[in-house]
């Protein structure tokens, strides 16, 4: 029999937050987060579609440019279905996308979907390889910085990462080209890939863009990893472990790591989301046939179906990665895993 007088001391908002947490089982919270992600996705699609539609300027005249006669505009409006109500067009657009049909490009009448699927693979290869290199490197450097905190290695890492987050992505790209392609002649530029290229060749071609992305994302990820681990390392339970006479390695492995997983995974997911966006600039720098390049070209030509399709893909990747981050931190919370 426990005495209820012994309720842990806590302030009102905390107590009620805990009750809310306890009332929900783990599964419910995860399901709720997935539903929220789904809702955000729908809302983002409305934002991308509706935002574009609600803005001033008539597409048909934009589309035709200077030689827009009234007759031509009317023809185009009809051809592009611009005369149907917006909600109707939104629903058919969304319905199409659900079946993989993103519509046809205004500029060259090609299927947007085909282009997106083909180029998405290229972009994901770029981002994936960059992530595979950046994540372990960032975690390792973050831990080195914590182990040597406020000493030389930490300071060097911190200065370099401050510099790296201050450089625009395209500048890093051109610096690498200048050095590796122009001066050393060891890397290829532009990074052209084509169908039927072998994996090895493909990887060699994308070396520089990958390196650019790694530098861009590494600095952020490392800084965030460092502060996440520092946060855990400065907690009272790590002090307890230290006062038990445990070795540094055991303290990190058994006491810090289980609690650092959630924040670190969050850091990784957030940076992967940033990485996906970083792909846009890097593809333009290296003239790489990915979805980012496709979108930027379409924006310059005001090719709306392409812009909307690509925008939705980017938003979806971003929303899903953020959702994964949240779900991992829900799963890693012992209070939720082992309710009272």
């Amino acid at each position: 029999m426990t005495s209820s007088l012994e309720e842990p001391v806590s302030s009102k908002p905390l107590a009620s937050a805990r009750q809310t947490l306890l009332r929900n089982s783990l599964g419910q919270m995860v399901v709720r987060r997935i539903l929220l992600g789904f809702g955000l996705l729908i809302a983002a699609s409305m934002l991308i579609f509706g935002g574009v539609e609600a803005l001033p300027g008539d597409f048909a005249s934009t589309y035709l440019g200077q030689d827009a006669t009234p007759q031509a505009i009317a023809n185009i409006r009809e051809e592009l279905d611009l005369d149907r109500p917006m909600t109707e067009r939104y629903l058919s657009w969304l319905g199409g996308i659900a079946q993989g049909d993103f519509g046809t490009s205004w500029s060259n009448r090609n299927s947007v979907g085909d282009q997106i699927w083909k180029r998405l693979g290229n972009s994901l290869l770029l981002a994936g390889v960059a992530a595979l290199i950046a994540i372990p490197l960032a975690l390792a450097l973050g831990m080195v910085a914590v182990l040597y905190r406020n000493r030389i290695p930490d300071k060097v890492i911190s200065i370099l990462s401050l510099a790296a987050i201050s450089l625009p992505e395209f500048f890093i790209g051109y610096l690498l080209i200048q050095f590796f392609t122009v001066q050393l002649g060891v890397a290829s530029f532009p990074a052209t890939v084509y169908d039927g290229m072998g994996l090895g060749e493909r990887l060699a071609t994308i070396a520089l863009p990958v390196m650019t992305l790694v530098i861009v994302v590494l600095a952020h990820m490392m800084r965030m990893t460092r502060s996440a681990i520092m946060n855990v390392m400065s907690s009272p339970y790590v002090e307890t472990a230290e006062l038990k006479g445990l070795s540094a390695l055991r303290i990190i492995a058994e006491h810090a790591a289980p609690n650092a997983i959630a924040p670190v995974v969050t850091v990784i997911a957030l940076n992967l989301a940033a990485l996906v966006v970083g792909v846009v600039v890097v593809e333009v720098v290296f003239v790489y046939p990915g979805i980012g390049q496709y979108m930027v070209d379409a924006v310059t030509m005001r090719d709306m179906p392409v812009v909307q399709g690509c925008g939705l893909i980017f938003a979806a990747l971003y929303i899903v990665l953020n959702m994964v981050a949240d779900i991992v931190s829900i799963l890693a919370n012992p209070r939720l895993r082992h309710p009272r």
């Binding site: 991308i48 574009v52 803005l55 300027g57 966006v277 924006v299 005001r302 925008g311 980017f314 929303i319």
Partner: peptide, 21 residues
């Protein structure tokens, strides 16, 4: 605010700037 932040800044800018003068 959550909704606006659910689309990456650069992507949102690209979409909007594509239509605006």
């Amino acid at each position: 605010n959550d909704l606006l932040m659910s689309v990456p800044a650069l992507i949102l800018a690209l979409v909007v700037l594509a239509v605006l003068p």
